[in-house]
Each structure stands twice: as structure tokens, then as C-alpha cells.
Amino acid sequence: MKVLHLIQKPQLRGAEVFASQLSTHLEEAGHQAILVSVFAGPAALPFGGKVYALNASQSHRFTDVKAWKKLAAIIESEKPDVIQANAGDTLKYAAFSKLLFGWKQPVIFRNASMISLYIKSKLIRLFNAFLFSKVELVISVSNSSAEDFVKLFPALKNHIITIPVGIEVNEAVATGKNTIPTLQGNPKLIHVGGFSFEKNHAGLLSVFERIIKKMPGALLHLVGDGPLKQQTQSLVEQKGLKKQVVFHGYQKQPLSFIRQADALLLPSIIEGLPGVVLEAFYCKTPVIAYDTGGIGEVVINNKTGYLIPKQNEVAFADAVESALNNSEEINRFIANAYQLVTTQYMNDDIAVKFVKAYQTITNKQAFSTNKVLQPTKNVIQNDYI
């Protein structure tokens, strides 16, 4: 089996990192994987195999015949069995390349978010319906993402399955070895994610203001980079929080930060299934998160963490206080969460599920509705709750 993964650009964002990790696991299992980036990017992705770049024009992404032709040439040369488009503009380039240059390989789209929150107008919806008409299968990161997708594009209800994101085994975390300075603060609270509107850093700071009224020694550690970082820094100064909010920038080993924290805070307003939650489970760090997208499929309230109604900042702050003061309860949550992630969300097992999906498509077996939206909210078995 040879799989071509089309990614937006070399960047250390969830979609690109997971595609790289999945490609590595495919090769370790005896398959072949190729990464093709649509746009240029500076990051070194965690994949040691074959990588191509279309060097497409961002200003001509709707008319970029040169890049579409280059993709077709790569496909003709490499002869992959499956093309997987991973978020961003990747499906646009795959669909137009296939339409104009006639290659026959099936296209899979990986749906990693809540697509309805980005498609606002009827025209954009019709355009995306056209793109999805070129897709054999949609693989959603969570049941919530799949349900959301089907509501917008019901014609694909028999062509969508859920395979979640996974995480990598990390011996440094497992053995407690750090490669970073000790995090300061009492308690040490952390958020890991790009500075984008979806991550809701403004709301996070508002929650943190409530927290420090109860725990004045708390420090909030922000790991990540992105377009709204400067705006967030300005907001920190405006709120007088400069001494209590620490910006760490992008980090190659975020798990080492998460492992040291007393709690991970995730007040996102849009999510598919964020890998950082699974990483916190793996690090045995308590999670407090808004009930957004597929988060509730892993953060099961009062079992693996605290799941808070969206935008309820008072309840969020109260849950942080509870997580820090109720050691017996939180130890039970941590044990449940660790069991969940290590038995159902490790990338080596996730890769097997992707291979089965690829084989089904290449064998031209139809997907039936009973394979769609398999329930995952109750994946934790009673024997360890």
C-alpha cells in the first residue's frame, strides 16, 4: 500500500504533524508513504521519508494550474494507491488536479474540525459540495465532527467514518525526564495551542483572572505561537497579568511542559478532537475543558476530567479549583484518562485503522451506514472506573 498525504505546508500544526506521524507508522508497518506540501513552509516535520513540495501560489489557489499539474506529475511518477487530503486547501488542489489531469486514484479527506463553523455562505457550501463530490471517503477525527459534516453534506452520509487522532509513545514523559527548566508557580497552569481565534486565549485570560482571586500564586504558562500571539500579549499587559502569565513560544517537546503542570486548561470555541488533551492524559495531568466539538468524547465529565458548558467561565474556574484541591477525585480521573489514552489513542494502533480504511476504498467495498458515527462517548469500560 502506498499513500500520498497532501498537507497544507510544512508547519507544526496538528493536521500536518499527525499526517507526518501517520506516514511514519505506515512505513514502519511495511507500507509506503509520501508527503506533498501545497505551500512552502519553514518547519521540519517528523517524517524521514519522501517529501515533495508543489510551491503553490497562495494568491492564485483557485486558478493554480501549474501546481495542479505538478501534483498530477507526482502522482503519475509515484503511483500511490490512495491520496489523502489533510485539511486547509489540500482538497481543493487534489480535486482540481484530478478533474483536469484525469488521474484515477481515490481521494480521502481527513475532516479534523467542525466544518460548519467555517462554511458560512450558500456559495461556499456549494463550492465545497463540488469538492467533496470528488472524494471517496471522509475520515472524521471525532463523532461530533462527523455528525456536523453530515448535517452540512448529507449526500456523503454513507461515505464517512470516524478515526480519532492519536499520540506518540514518549519515553521521556513516561520516565519523568525533563529537557526544560522547571515551571514556576503555585499552582502551575498550562495551555498548549496556536494563538488563533479557535483557541480562545481572551476567554482563557478571563478565566485566569477568576482563578488568581482564589489562588494568587498561580502562574499561567502559554506554549505555542500564531497570528494572535501579539494581541494576546497586549491583552495580558492591559489586564495587569504580566507577572503571572508566561509565554514560552513554540516548543518541540510540549509534553515535558504538560507533565510538569498541575492542570491543562482548554477553553476552545472550535475543536475537532485536540491531541493536546490526549497528551495531557498521557502525562497524567488533569484536564479542564469546554464541551466543544469532540472534546466530550474523551474528557468525560467526572470520569476523565472536567467538561464545562461552553463560555461558563465561573464553572471553569471552579473546576480548576476543584482539580487542585481534591486529590482523591483527581487521582481517579487521572487513572481513567491514562487508561483510556494508552489503550485506544496511541498512533501505532490508529495507523492500523487508517490502513483498513485505505484497503476498503482500494478494494471498492461500499461503506454502509452502520459504520458511520460509531459511538465513542462511553469508550471507558466499567472495569476501570
Rank of each mutant, 00 (worst) to 15 (best):
G176L: 12
G249T: 05
D225H: 05
P227Q: 06
L220H: 00
P181A: 14
P254M: 08
T175F: 09
L205K: 10
N178Y: 15
M215C: 05
E209D: 11
G185W: 08
I180L: 12
N200D: 15
P216M: 03
G224P: 02
F195W: 07
G185R: 08
L204V: 09
F208V: 08
G185E: 08
T232D: 06
G249L: 04
I190H: 07
I212L: 10
L189C: 09
I180N: 04
G203N: 09
N186V: 08
L235P: 04
M215I: 15
P227T: 05
Q238Y: 01
N200A: 10
Q251C: 14
T179R: 15
H221Y: 00
H221G: 01
N186L: 04
K214L: 11
K229D: 05
V207H: 08
P254A: 06
K239S: 11
H201K: 11
F208N: 09
L228C: 06
F247T: 02
L189H: 07
H191N: 15
G193T: 03
Q233N: 03
Q244F: 00
A218R: 01
G240Y: 04
Q251M: 13
G185A: 08
G240L: 08
K213E: 15
I212C: 09
V236F: 02
T175G: 00
I212S: 05
N178C: 12
L205S: 09
N178D: 15
P187V: 06
S196W: 13
E198T: 09
V192P: 07
I212G: 09
T179G: 15
V236G: 05
A218W: 01
T179F: 10
G185S: 13
V245R: 07
T175Y: 05
G203P: 12
T175D: 10
Q231I: 04
E198W: 00
V236K: 01
H221D: 02
I212Y: 04
M215K: 13
T182V: 14
H248A: 03
H191P: 04
V223S: 02
S256P: 00
K252Y: 07
Q230T: 12
L228A: 07
K229W: 03
E198M: 09
G203C: 11
G203F: 07
G224R: 00
K214R: 15
T175V: 15
L235C: 02
P181W: 03
S196G: 14
S206C: 11
L220C: 00
V223G: 02
G240Q: 08
Q251E: 11
Q244H: 11
A218Q: 01
F197T: 13
E237F: 06
N186D: 15
I212A: 03
Q244V: 00
L220D: 01
L241N: 00
Q253I: 06
L241S: 01
V246N: 02
H201S: 12
V192S: 04
L222Y: 03
H191K: 10
K252R: 09
V223L: 03
G226I: 02
N200E: 09
G249A: 06
G203V: 08
M215A: 13
T232I: 11
L183S: 00
L228W: 02
